[in-house]
């Protein structure tokens, strides 16, 4: 059930748009209105979400330290895993965001015991697949800018060149297309196959995977198999970004499926775990400097509390203190 519901949802979405475009001729709806709406929901949703996070203060300085602190000058500090400066935090976050540093921690050459296999193997795969998936997602996203600009910007062309350096087939095969399909498939299989991960997984964990598989799948179909009218697509895309939307004839249903799934992903983003993209930057255990004894951290909602004062304490024990020779304030 946990898997079936999200799967069927994605299938239903695909059927919906196919029927809408093929039978009802709703190109305008699926090609223009929904994408606009989705982007609007995405932008507003993310902003609201981040604002919501940002409005909760960070009352305490609570980095999780993963290396030697800065203390005595002759003890070598781990400036990245236990940063005491903003620069260190930037490096730590960069490693985290660009290379998934923490996931990589799982990979550790293990002590081998009487021929025990290398342990944590599957976790290394998680890191690798996670990285492969995210990077190819990013590259594919960047590659799509060619549709939105009259002249394809140089960085985009460069990335395209790198991505297709194998020079296989016509049209040239993009490596990332293979990688993203492989990685997402792996992430899915892993969720199903590893008992622990399966146990913790929710429908909301499968849904984005199916959605992205759907997006990547339709994209690959369009590029390599059932060709769509690329000039038409570009016209539509340019129209969208210049706010003079046009709906060219005969782009092909498959394209609308692709576009619709992307729209769904965008609209779904702010309401789901996918906000981890933004959240990772606000995680106090990672983005804080470990300098709490050097610089006082201020808690905006710090309030006075009742304490048991020394005077009360002495009142309780004055005689006993005097007998034990402990100095007192009031004789």
């Amino acid at each position: 059930m946990k898997i079936l519901i999200p799967f069927l949802t994605v299938i239903a979405l695909i059927l919906l748009v196919a029927a809408g475009v093929k039978a009802a001729g709703l190109e305008l709806l699926f090609g223009v209105l929904i994408p606009y709406a989705a982007v609007a929901v995405f932008a507003v949703g993310i902003v609201l979400r981040v604002v919501k996070w940002a409005r909760s203060p960070v009352p305490f300085r609570i980095p999780t330290t993963c290396g030697q602190q800065k203390s005595l000058p002759w003890i070598r500090q781990n400036k990245i895993e236990n940063p005491s400066s903003t620069l260190g935090v930037i490096a730590r976050m960069a490693l985290e965001v660009l290379f998934f540093r923490s996931l990589f921690r799982n990979v550790k050459t293990e002590l081998r015991n009487d021929g025990d296999r290398l342990a944590y193997g599957s976790d290394k795969w998680l890191w690798l697949a996670g990285l492969a998936f995210h990077w190819s997602f990013l590259i594919i996203l960047v590659r799509h800018f060619r549709f939105f600009a009259a002249h394809v910007p140089f960085p985009v062309r460069m990335i395209e060149g790198l991505d297709s350096f194998l020079q296989i087939g016509a049209p040239l095969l993009y490596l990332t297309d293979l990688i993203i399909l492989g990685a997402v498939t792996y992430l899915f299989l892993r969720r199903v196959a590893l008992p622990m991960v399966r146990y913790i997984s929710l429908p909301a964990d499968y849904f984005p995977l199916f959605l992205i598989l759907g997006i990547a799948g339709t994209g690959v179909l369009m590029r390599y198999f059932t060709k769509v009218d690329v000039t038409g697509v570009k016209q539509l895309a340019m129209g969208l970004v210049s706010f003079t939307p046009v709906v060219p004839e005969g782009i092909g249903t498959l394209f609308y499926v692709h576009l619709f799934l992307v729209s769904v992903l965008f609209a779904y983003f702010p309401f789901s775990k996918l906000v981890h993209m933004a959240g990772v930057f606000l995680s106090p255990t990672r983005n804080m400097v470990n300098n709490s004894r050097m610089v006082r951290h201020v808690n905006p909602w710090n309030y006075p509390v009742t304490v048991h004062t020394y005077e009360e304490y002495e009142d309780d024990f004055r005689e006993k203190m005097k007998m034990a020779g402990i100095p007192v304030e009031k004789e």
Binding site: E110, L111, N113, D116, R117, A119, Y120, L194, P195, M196, Y199
Partner: peptide, 14 residues
């Protein structure tokens, strides 16, 4: 749920 975990990992310390 427990036995699944006990089966999956082979590492002496994990």
């Amino acid at each position: 749920d427990t036995s699944n975990f006990l089966k999956t990992k082979k590492n002496r310390f994990a």
